[in-house]
Write a protein that binds this DNA or RNA. Structure first.
Lengths: 228, 228
DNA sequence: CCTGGTAAGTTGACGCCGTCAACATCGAGC
DNA sequence: GCTCGATGTTGACGGCGTCAACTTACCAGG
């Protein structure tokens, strides 16, 4: 796995280190333990580093023990994925909450949107592995939320709330509210992806990346708040 | 692999079909043949369907024969990836060329930008496998173009040209030109990704997707052409 | 026209992976 | 205190990428 030219491929898989030989035959909390080990793997190596056998090794348990708690290697990955998604949402919500709420409502809400956008991107850069895992492919349509789109991502709900506030504050004309959520998400997500995993992150200097980020976020805000 | 709820996972791998038992011991054009087989696999199954042994099987050759032409399974993937990128660029350039050039220059250039954006997204939807392959992770920094960012993607150069035209035509203020390329790319790419591989494609009805696409593209154009 | 060297394929093996069937161990409730 | 189900283990299988050693076919130079 390449992130900004630094090879953080999971090949110090020499590991095999298990935290402790584990005295009791039964682990007691294996499902959680495997999840956490999986998250750790994902954090440093992205989704393809979440390898069932390695997870088992780290927890100090045989590979097949996993099958008592997960139907599949895929199910483990999905669990990890949800955790990653939740962590992303956390970062986003925290950043928004940190924006001072005094001042003109329009200014505040724009500042919040900006903070959210930057938090999303920063998360993707700082936690590339987790970010990629959050959006990695998993065969099953990860929705207990069929039809109710994105209900599983708190991040998306936070964004929606912000946009509603923006309409209230008069920053966004009501007839442009619909679809603004997905559009905003697309832009930020696209930039984050191109940065964490793609050509932007690979080819651009740090300053160039920062400039591109600022421009991208401002372009989004311009589009959202354009008077026309 | 799930694309919009349709499982196109590469599990009709029953294949093993080799086009013909191949009479001559030497293939003659194995490198190309493997590439093409790889592209076909990628088209229907995404990057993870590009499996060295299966490619060899399809071409009717032993697995290790690949090593006479590729240093690595990764190198094969990368070759396929470049082909996918090229195909995407083609679709984009063709769509732009199809826009009638008569009329007010500003209108024309906006129409071209819109066409490019929609072509990009449409390609991602119609050729999800290839699209995902075009942007899939490959360990090596796929740049003979180190530092000269994106020079390997004709699609990006086409976009840059369009934006230059837009400045000329007075649609984009010159001081907003810098970074507009990456920002535009981000938005379209993000939407395409969310659609081809992510929650948008999985959870939204076709009409909802179309609406979201239109809104996303228009929001981008608004941001680019905003007067202020 | 032979001949030898090298490019292009082959076979068999290795260690990784996910997964299955069969067996072992523990602990909760009769 | 026994039993039985939940939880772990072992060993095996086939698929993967890759390596070393072997074979085949072509092409140049005599």
């Amino acid at each position: 796995m390449f992130v900004n030219g630094v090879n953080i491929r999971h090949d110090e898989r020499v590991s095999a280190r298990q935290t402790a030989p584990r005295t009791r035959y039964h682990h007691g909390d294996l499902r959680n333990a495997m999840m956490e080990a999986g998250v750790e793997l994902a954090r440093t190596g992205g989704p393809e580093a979440v390898v069932l056998r390695e997870v088992a090794r780290r927890v100090g348990v045989s590979a097949t023990a996993a099958y008592r708690h997960f139907s599949d290697a895929e199910e483990l990955l999905e669990e990890v994925k949800h955790t990653a998604l939740a962590e992303l949402a956390d970062a986003l919500i925290t950043a928004v909450a940190a924006v001072p709420a005094d001042g003109d409502p329009p200014d505040v809400v724009v500042a919040r949107l900006r903070a959210a956008a930057n938090a999303y991107i920063d998360f993707a850069v700082r936690n590339a592995g987790l970010f990629l895992t959050a959006y990695c492919r998993t065969a099953s349509p990860d929705s207990k939320y069929e039809g109710e789109p994105f209900a599983d991502t708190d991040a998306f709900r936070a964004l929606s709330g912000l946009l509603d506030q923006a309409v209230e504050a008069g920053c966004i004309s009501p007839e442009w509210r619909a679809g603004a959520d997905i559009a905003s998400w697309s832009m930020v997500h696209g930039f984050a992806t191109l940065l964490a995993d793609g050509p932007v992150g690979r080819h651009l200097s740090a300053e160039a990346q920062a400039f591109a980020q600022e421009r991208t976020v401002e372009l989004l805000l311009r589009g959202l708040t354009a008077s026309e």
